[in-house]
């Protein structure tokens, strides 16, 4: 009998009950303790921001808080690093356009 190799199988994980976060208006499953970026990766989402100049898609790059590529708007706050922020139940994540501060423009 061969079990499918997965990260969870590798470490024999028995996670607590999954919960939901919201990404651009749709529910995404998250496991307790996962970062938002991890929950999105698990869902197959790799991009949650478009760049200021070229409007290009970006997501997590360094995974450790150093590159700031994984910025997005979380619960209305722009420029949050999703690789660091835990996915709490009910967290609302929105794809961020550019600087994410268009509401401040005058």
């Amino acid at each position: 009998m061969t079990r499918r190799r997965t990260p969870a199988a590798l470490v024999e994980a028995d996670p607590g009950p999954a919960h939901r976060i919201e990404f651009d208006g749709r529910p995404v499953r998250a496991l307790p303790g996962q970062s938002i970026a991890a929950a999105l990766w698990a869902d197959g989402v790799l991009a949650w921001r478009t760049t200021r100049v070229g409007g290009r898609p970006r997501g997590a790059f360094c995974g450790i808080g150093a590159c700031f590529d994984c910025l997005a708007t979380v619960n209305g706050r722009a420029n949050q690093r999703l690789c660091l922020l835990p996915a709490e139940p009910g967290t609302v994540v929105t794809t961020q356009e550019g600087h994410g501060r268009a509401d401040l423009a005058v």
């Binding site: 990766w41 997590a60 360094c62 690789c83």
Partner: peptide
């Protein structure tokens, strides 16, 4: 190198170790 899905080697490992996910 700026395309989504291009990640750092350490980043792939960090996301795996901490979040049990793959890119």
């Amino acid at each position: 190198w700026t395309l989504p899905g291009v990640v750092t080697a350490g980043g792939a490992q960090a996301m795996l170790k901490a979040g049990l996910v793959l890119p």
